[in-house]
Design a protein around this nucleic acid. Structure first.
Lengths: 109, 109
DNA sequence: CGTCTATATGTGGCATAGCCATATATGGAG
DNA sequence: CTCCATATATGGCTATGCCACATATAGACG
């Protein structure tokens, strides 16, 4: 898998996972790996900076949660702006893959 | 359209277009733009270097063609290695989008 | 005849986002 | 008491596409 393919996809992935419910960084990384059956594997070193970027953009919001018997975790949830942005992100992705499929005969068939 | 999405996709696109028949750089750029209905627009400044890379890798092979009444053009065609590599590239792409769809609810439905 | 646009190839420097290595810290299993 | 999984964080590297710029010709339009 050319690693370059992944560029720009982390956003929809993270936003979609946070659409279900608030999650913390490490959980997001593991979920992506698991649900994609190992095909996608975002290193946490890429994920944390992405989370900071999304937070700065105002699409997600994080807060620390410390429970006894657990390490501290930063849970992120979608903001209203983030929830509003998600459909457009999904549409962009869909249009993008359709465009590729029109140029390269790459469709599932 | 986040420009980052395109990263790593030029390869399959070029290879697929050359699978039909030999073409020159400028034609490839225009075809990508046209067939994708404007969604994909690779700048020639990205395309030419990509062609050189593919040639160095031995997947495509270019030769100059000068016709009177036309500017000089460099036509590229798939090599045997390139033709052999294409199905794997297409498979990678398919697996990749399926993986994204399993993580983000992004499917066409 | 001059200018403009489309065609055609090419290069140097920039930006972005993911990767690797590394660091820190805790809970639980053995 | 060591090791692994969990959890967050940062600095430097790399790849690939983007922008600006350069060069050159054919054809259209005035």
């Amino acid at each position: 898998m050319q690693p370059e393919l992944k560029k720009g996809t982390a956003e929809v992935l993270i936003l979609s996972l946070l659409d279900d419910r608030p999650r913390h960084g490490y959980e997001i990384a593991k979920l992506i790996e698991k649900r994609s059956e190992g095909i996608l594997e975002f290193h946490v070193a890429s994920l944390y900076p992405m989370l900071y970027r999304l937070e700065r953009r105002g699409w997600i919001e994080g807060r620390w949660l410390e429970k006894s018997g657990q390490r501290r975790r930063r849970f992120y949830k979608l903001t209203t702006a983030g929830r509003r942005a998600l459909p457009a992100e999904r549409r962009t992705w869909r249009e993008f893959i359709r465009a590729i499929e029109r140029v390269a005969q790459v469709g599932d068939a």
